[in-house]
Amino acid sequence: MLSHSEFLSLIEKYFESRGYVTFLSEEYKDLLNNFFDLMFRGKNNEIIAIKIVEQKEFSLKMKEEIEKIIVRVLSIVSNIDISKVYIVAVNPRFTSLPNIDIFKESGIGLITIGPDNQIIERIPAKMREYRNMVGKSIEKDIYFLVKDLRTKVYLLEERMSKYEERLNNLLRRIEFIENKVSYISTKEVSAISDVEEKKKVMDDSFDFLRDNPWLNVLSKRKKST
C-alpha cells in the first residue's frame, strides 16, 4: 500500500503524461493547503484541481466524505477560477461511491486508483463554463433548502405545541366522560336503536343535512335503462 505522498506522485505522473504541468500560485495557496491535494495547468491554461479520498474502513464513511467534498467543491468553484475538478478515489469499493448521476450533474470527474496502482478516469470532469450557468440554479436550490429546513423546524415546533394542547384537552375530556359514565350507569337508558341514535346525532349536528330535500332526491338517482 502506497503512502499519501506516493499517491500524489503517481497522480502527478498521470496528468503530466497527458500534457498538464503542476501548478502553484499565490492565489490558490490557501486552497492547496486546506482542501485540494494537487493542481495542474493545461495547454489552454485551464486549471485542474485534484482531491484524493482514500478507502476508509466503512464504505458509508467514504461515500459521505465524497458527498461532502462535492458540496464543498461546488461552493468553491462559484467564487474562483477552476476549470475542472477531479476526485481521486483510492481503492474504492463499489458501495463507497455516490451515485454516478451526482458526479455527472455536478461536473466533477472521478478517477480511481486500484490495488495494482492502476489509474482509470471513470467519469470525465466537465469544463467550468457549464458550472457557471448552473451556479445560479444551485444558489436558488440552496436558498430553498435552507427555507425548507427552517420551515420543518418551525412546523415541528408548532406541532409539538398543538400536541401538548390536544393532550391537555383529551385529559379534560376523559375526566368529563368518566363523570358522565358514572352518572349514566345509574339511570335507565331509553329504547332508541343504535343506528337511529347515530343518525339523529349526525343529522342534528349539521344544519345543512337536517331536513334537506336533496337527500331524498339524490338517493333516487339511478342509471337510466
Binding site: I70, E105, D141, D148
Partner: peptide, 17 residues
C-alpha cells in the same frame, strides 16, 4: 415549485418535495 427534481443539492440531502 422549490425544485425541478434535478437538483443535486436536494439529492444529496434527500429532499424529495
Amino acid at each position: 415549485f422549490v425544485s425541478d427534481g434535478e437538483s443535486i443539492i436536494f439529492k444529496i440531502f434527500g429532499v424529495s418535495r
